[in-house]
Design a protein around this nucleic acid. Structure first.
Lengths: 215, 215
DNA sequence: CATTTGCTTGACCGTTTGGTCAAAATGAAC
DNA sequence: GTTCATTTTGACCAAACGGTCAAGCAAATG
């Protein structure tokens, strides 16, 4: 029964059906808990309660709270980055950025927990994703700044600093997820209305795209 | 009964010289600790260590960790709001907004801890400042949206939604404080150079102001 | 000087929480 | 059924942490 197919001790894990389901349930619950309470504020018990499992059972699937956190974060980063990678150097600048901003705003509205989780991580010094930021993300951003600079060179965009344009898009799109409570408190009835997030997207697009169009 | 000379709401403490100095030292240390570790992550011991006092001594001046947190937050909110209140309805729109954005970016660069403290509070559901957001801040924002709408009506600004303009400014200016680690990681050498924050201010102003100028 | 009041702290307590462990339940294979 | 591996948990431990308290120290006050 110990063929290459069944149970490999170290290299890779076949992952039984039960394991796969439980792991996923745990990571889903953990995302919520970590996002609302932060790493320190979250407790294994809280995550366990949310999945209906016992605490030791969580630690049967993941060896520590840290590890759960890392995996949730890792999983989140991929989604977070995908639309950024998708910016096409060959496409029309305004159209590409419109697509990117729209995608990010949609993510903020649909999965604010992911955004909050990430915000928390960065806010506390990026202890886990720090090296990722300095390598993968940095390279990716460098690449995109070249694209933007190329667009500017062609006269398709106003002469703006690519870094700050990117930061500004990140800032704005994340804000709607991370600060949603403040937004709801301040905008009051406005924010409750259906179509509010579409309206937000429209306003953000208007300002940024007008701001970077060549004059 | 109550002489109205002291600013005290509780009508008891004249506050000795020593008390005033120690209270301030504690609040200063607490700002740093809360900003970098969050409420849950911060410990009274850490704050005490930073002031050179003992833990019981902190609790002699403030009755609980919560109370320290509240006072730090309260103190921070005032600074945070001041430049927003200062937006002058009679002034030139572009000039007023330039002043506001510049002031906020400067705060982000000089006192990022204050910004981080606030971000953390909101991110975790605004348990302490929630009611403040729904009353004072909401009223203030409503007032400023009217000013912006008036400017738009006069044709001095492009027709943009005032709420989203405000959110966008908040988002962007806070981003440079709250996500400074990500910015430094991604921008690398750029961010280290002197004048980086001035450059950031220039870029942000360019995009937003161009974005809202009437065409 | 003595006395009162304000300031400071070492030692301690109760609770929370991350993590362990041995044993029980469940399931799979024969 | 029996046997063996996987999954689950109650009970427990050690460390961390918020907070208390009684006693010590300092500084005014007389």
């Amino acid at each position: 029964m110990n063929q290459t197919k069944r149970k490999d001790a170290k290299a890779s894990k076949p992952l039984s059906r039960i394991q796969e389901a439980n792991r996923k349930a745990i990571l889903d619950a953990a995302l919520d808990v970590f996002a609302t309470s932060g790493f320190r504020g979250a407790t294994i018990d809280a995550i366990a309660a949310r999945t209906g499992m016992s605490k030791p059972n969580l630690l049967y699937y993941f060896k520590s709270k840290q590890q759960i956190y890392q995996q949730v974060l890792e999983q989140t980063l991929e989604d977070w980055l995908a639309p950024f990678e998708a910016i096409d150097p060959e496409g029309d600048p305004v159209e590409e950025l419109r697509r990117y901003i729209t995608a990010k705003l949609e993510m903020s509205s649909k999965r604010p927990e992911a955004s909050k989780l990430f915000a928390n991580e960065i806010l506390h010094g990026a202890p886990v994703v720090g090296s990722f930021l300095e390598t993968t993300l940095k390279d990716l951003v460098t690449e995109k700044t070249k694209v933007i600079r190329h667009w500017v060179g062609e006269g398709k965009l106003a002469p703006i600093d690519p870094y700050h344009l990117i930061f500004m898009i990140w800032a704005t799109t994340q804000h709607y997820a991370d600060f949603d409570i403040q937004i709801r408190a301040v905008a009051g009835s406005q924010a409750g209305r259906p179509g509010f997030s579409e309206q937000a997207a429209q306003a953000v697009l208007t300002i940024i795209l007008n701001g970077i169009k060549p004059r």
